[in-house]
Simulated assay, not measured.
Amino acid sequence: MLSYIWIPVHLINTIISATAILMGTLIGALFSWIISKKTTVRNIEEQYKLMKENRSYEEFHKQRDFCANANIVRLDICTALFQSIRTLKDYRKGDLQNKYPIPINKDYSCVVSTLTDKYTLKELSYIYQFYGIIEKVNYDILNCDLYDENCFKKIIGGYEDILKKIYGSNFEEILSKDIDAMSYEELYDNDLTKKGYRTALQTLDKLCIIENEG
Score class of each variant (00 low, 15 high):
164 K>N: 12
104 I>C: 06
208 C>R: 05
180 D>A: 07
106 K>W: 13
192 L>P: 01
104 I>P: 04
146 L>E: 10
99 K>H: 07
120 T>V: 09
151 C>P: 02
107 D>Q: 06
181 A>C: 11
147 Y>V: 14
202 Q>L: 11
143 N>D: 07
171 F>Q: 04
186 E>F: 11
148 D>E: 08
142 L>V: 03
203 T>G: 07
180 D>Y: 10
125 S>P: 00
128 Y>Q: 00
142 L>T: 07
105 N>C: 10
180 D>Q: 07
121 L>F: 11
142 L>H: 00
210 I>C: 03
169 S>Q: 04
169 S>I: 09
159 Y>S: 00
135 E>C: 15
123 E>L: 08
140 D>Y: 11
103 P>F: 07
187 L>W: 05
170 N>P: 01
152 F>D: 01
138 N>I: 04
147 Y>M: 15
119 Y>W: 10
120 T>A: 07
176 S>K: 14
165 K>V: 13
106 K>L: 15
160 E>V: 00
185 E>R: 14
144 C>N: 11
139 Y>R: 09
132 G>H: 12
124 L>M: 13
124 L>R: 11
142 L>W: 02
167 Y>A: 08
148 D>R: 06
131 Y>W: 12
138 N>V: 10
177 K>M: 14
134 I>H: 02
122 K>D: 15
109 S>P: 07
156 I>R: 02
183 S>L: 11
194 K>N: 09
110 C>T: 14
152 F>V: 06
116 T>I: 14
167 Y>Q: 05
146 L>G: 08
125 S>E: 02
198 R>E: 09
132 G>L: 08
93 K>R: 15
159 Y>A: 01
197 Y>H: 13
188 Y>H: 06
180 D>I: 07
114 T>A: 03
204 L>I: 04
199 T>A: 08
149 E>L: 15
99 K>F: 01
162 I>G: 06
208 C>W: 04
95 D>N: 15
158 G>M: 00
187 L>Q: 02
207 L>V: 02
209 I>E: 02
97 Q>H: 02
167 Y>R: 05
97 Q>C: 00
108 Y>V: 08
133 I>G: 05
95 D>M: 14
93 K>P: 11
171 F>K: 02
175 L>C: 05
146 L>W: 04
113 S>Y: 13
194 K>M: 10
191 D>N: 13
139 Y>S: 07
204 L>K: 02
170 N>K: 01
129 Q>C: 14
142 L>F: 02
154 K>S: 14
207 L>T: 02
191 D>G: 09
188 Y>L: 00
114 T>H: 08
105 N>K: 10
101 P>W: 05
138 N>G: 09
122 K>W: 14
174 I>D: 03
102 I>T: 02
190 N>Q: 04
136 K>L: 09
108 Y>C: 06
160 E>G: 00
190 N>W: 01
108 Y>N: 09
138 N>L: 05
101 P>S: 12
121 L>A: 12
111 V>D: 06
94 G>A: 12
167 Y>V: 00
199 T>P: 01
195 K>D: 15
166 I>F: 03
98 N>L: 10
158 G>F: 00
186 E>H: 08
105 N>G: 08
170 N>E: 00
111 V>W: 01
196 G>Q: 11
210 I>R: 03
118 K>H: 07
194 K>S: 10
156 I>S: 06
